[in-house]
Simulated scan of single mutants.
Amino acid sequence: MYIKKILLLIVAITLVAGSIFSYTVYNKIFDPNTSFTEETKEVLIPTGSSFYDVVAKVSPFIKDVESFSWLAKKKGYATRVKPGKYLLVKGSNNNELISNLRSRNIPIKISFNNQERLENLAGRIAQQIETDSISLLNVFKEEAFLTEAGFNLNTALSMYIPNSYQVFWNISAEGFRNKMLKEYKHFWNDKRVKKAQNIGLKPVEVITLASIVHKETVKASERPRVAGVYMNRLKKGMKLDADPTVIYAIKKSSNNWKRVIRRVLRKDLKLVHPYNTYKNKGLPPGPIAMPDISAIDAVLNYENHNYFYFVADVEKFGYHKFSKNLRQHNNYSSKYHKWVNSKGIKR
């Protein structure tokens, strides 16, 4: 009888202990374990992070680090950390937190526009994703890739169409570059390629001309007309005589890309340089900047007219005066230069 009581007591104690243990385990797994009041918290896990790095990242946002670590080890996450951007949701339990960190890498939206060089583009992208600018620039300039993709160092910037894109924060430099090539091919669909063929230009040449058009006017509505001027000059075998190419040539020859040039002088037009379209016929070797899509489409859909010249309009700022002949252009140009001189703009 005495032994039976002892056995019953042992069973009772075991059941209670088991219940307590089960309750404790249940709480470790399913009790809410966040400590922030916002709806979500963003966590960036760099490539190569250890589980201890993850704990350091999430510990400011959870109440019980010990239970989180315990379950992470039980579920095998501690040895299979994945880099990326993750969101911790308010009120999540450990099971939900670990599931998010293990399998819900969230894409981010990146954007870029009007970059002047690959170096500028690499810097802009590096501000938005994990990869550093040097790694990006190296793959942007990789000779084997450029040759296979149909570009060279002068035209490489053409591949990057300014827009917003979704990528993973931890995308590699090569992964980003390859995605941009896919986007480039997607942008140059059959319709755009056919338009380029109809005007006698290759896609890269369209972008090169569009970069000049983009620099000439900020007014999207005026870009097809400006593009028409340059197409008229190309058809006639005239030099483009585009001031933005001279500015680019000055910067490139001096390797001073921070230089601000508000006025092109006569002596500048004499600069012997492949990008100076006052000295060389045809298009420059590549784009002088990254043109907006509106500028690219302006070239593809350029305005048919008889204008060969244009100069800034001093009465309607931001726009230009267009001329069919040099006499009329010189008249408008004289007014523009008088205005520039009156403002004291010497360079």
Rank of each mutant, 00 (worst) to 15 (best):
Q128Y: 03
Q128H: 13
Q128L: 07
Q128D: 06
Q128T: 07
Q128C: 14
Q128P: 03
I129T: 05
I129V: 12
I129S: 00
E130N: 04
E130L: 15
E130G: 11
E130H: 14
E130F: 08
T131N: 07
T131D: 04
T131F: 08
T131A: 13
D132I: 03
D132R: 06
D132C: 07
D132K: 02
D132L: 00
D132G: 07
S133E: 09
S133C: 06
S133Y: 07
S133L: 08
S133H: 09
I134E: 15
I134D: 13
I134L: 09
S135G: 10
L136P: 00
L136C: 06
L136D: 00
L136Q: 02
L136T: 03
L137P: 00
L137C: 02
L137I: 05
L137E: 01
L137S: 00
N138P: 05
N138W: 04
N138R: 09
N138D: 14
N138F: 05
V139D: 06
V139L: 13
V139E: 12
V139A: 04
V139W: 09
V139G: 05
V139H: 11
V139R: 08
F140I: 04
F140G: 00
F140C: 04
F140V: 01
F140E: 00
K141N: 14
K141E: 12
K141P: 02
K141L: 09
E142Q: 13
E142N: 15
E142C: 10
E142Y: 05
E143A: 14
E143N: 13
E143Q: 11
A144V: 10
A144L: 15
F145E: 13
F145T: 06
F145N: 07
F145C: 12
F145P: 01
F145A: 08
F145S: 07
L146M: 11
L146V: 05
L146P: 01
L146R: 04
T147I: 15
T147S: 15
E148T: 11
E148P: 03
E148Q: 14
A149Q: 07
A149I: 06
A149T: 09
G150I: 08
G150W: 07
G150P: 03
G150F: 09
F151N: 02
F151P: 01
F151G: 02
F151C: 06
F151S: 06
F151E: 03
F151W: 05
F151Y: 15
N152Q: 11
N152A: 06
N152T: 11
L153H: 13
L153Q: 09
L153R: 10
L153C: 11
L153E: 15
L153A: 14
L153F: 11
N154L: 11
N154H: 09
N154R: 08
N154G: 11
T155N: 14
T155V: 09
T155G: 08
T155A: 08
T155C: 08
A156Q: 01
A156V: 11
A156E: 02
A156T: 04
A156N: 09
A156Y: 00
L157A: 01
L157N: 00
L157K: 00
S158Q: 07
S158V: 05
S158A: 14
S158R: 00
S158C: 12
S158M: 04
S158I: 02
M159N: 01
M159A: 10
M159W: 04
